[in-house]
Amino acid sequence: MNPIQEYFYRIDEPERSTLLFLRKKILESDPDNITETLSFGLPFFKYKKKMLCYLYYSKKHKKHYISFYHGDKLNHPLLLQEGRKRFKILLIDGNEDLPLDFILGLINEVKQYIK
């Protein structure tokens, strides 16, 4: 198993399945330009080799989240900034339906700021 796969397999269900599904959908949303790398022990997604988003766990909220680069330019009430300068996060609940269209829309919006 590569280090990125190991990251996901250390996570308990149902969060693991949710995050693996999200990972797959992010990579499939733009397979020619979105790549995945492990940085700081976390799965990072890059768009044309520039930071796009990453996945992590919030000890404060006790939930996993997706963090969006250029989040300071995104305006939506579900996104939390909590003192971050350039990032905003979206908490992910493994027991609820994943707002996939919303997440992919945010990714497309961030891509506009990268170009």
Rank of each mutant, 00 (worst) to 15 (best):
Glu36Arg: 02
Leu98Asp: 05
Ile66Cys: 03
Val110Ser: 02
Pro43Asn: 12
Glu109Gly: 10
Ile4Val: 09
Leu80Glu: 15
Arg84Pro: 06
Phe45Gly: 02
Tyr57His: 12
Tyr69Gly: 06
His76Leu: 06
Phe102Cys: 07
Pro31Glu: 14
Leu20Ala: 03
Ser29Ile: 00
Ile26Glu: 05
Arg10Pro: 01
Gly71Val: 13
Pro14Phe: 11
Lys49Met: 12
Asn108Pro: 07
Phe87Cys: 13
Leu74Phe: 07
Phe8Thr: 05
Leu106Gln: 00
Pro31Gly: 11
Pro14Arg: 13
Ser39Met: 14
Thr37Pro: 01
Thr35Gly: 03
Pro31Thr: 12
Lys46Tyr: 06
Leu104Ala: 05
Asp72Ser: 11
Phe40Ser: 14
Ile11Ala: 07
Ser17Gln: 14
Phe44Met: 00
Lys115Thr: 11
Ile103Tyr: 03
Glu36Asp: 07
Asp93Ala: 00
Arg10Thr: 05
Glu15Tyr: 04
Tyr47Asp: 06
Gln112Met: 10
Lys73Ser: 14
Lys25Val: 06
Glu13Gly: 05
Leu52Cys: 02
Glu96Trp: 09
Leu90Lys: 01
Phe68Asn: 14
Ile34Ser: 09
Leu78Tyr: 15
Lys49Ile: 11
Pro43Phe: 07
Lys60Phe: 04
Gly71Ile: 13
Gln112Val: 03
Arg10Trp: 03
Lys115Trp: 14
Glu109Cys: 09
Leu91Ala: 08
Tyr54Ser: 08
Tyr65Val: 02
Glu109Tyr: 02
Thr18Pro: 05
Lys62Gly: 06
Glu96Thr: 10
Asn33Leu: 08
Lys49Arg: 10
Gln81Leu: 06
Ile114Phe: 04
Leu90Ala: 05
Thr35Gln: 07
Lys85Asp: 07
Glu15Thr: 09
Lys25Trp: 02
Pro77Ile: 11
Met1Cys: 02
Met1Ala: 00
Leu100Trp: 02
Gln5Phe: 05
Ser58Gln: 03
Asp97Arg: 15
Asp93Ile: 10
Cys53Gly: 12
Lys115Asp: 11
Gln5Arg: 09
Gly83Thr: 10
Asn95His: 06
Tyr56Phe: 15
Leu27Val: 08
Arg10Ala: 08
Lys48Arg: 15
Pro31Asn: 13
Arg86Pro: 00
Met51Ile: 15
Ile66Leu: 09
Asn33Lys: 14
His64Leu: 04
Arg23Asp: 01
Asp72Trp: 06
Glu28Trp: 02
Glu36Met: 04
Pro99Gln: 04
His64Trp: 07
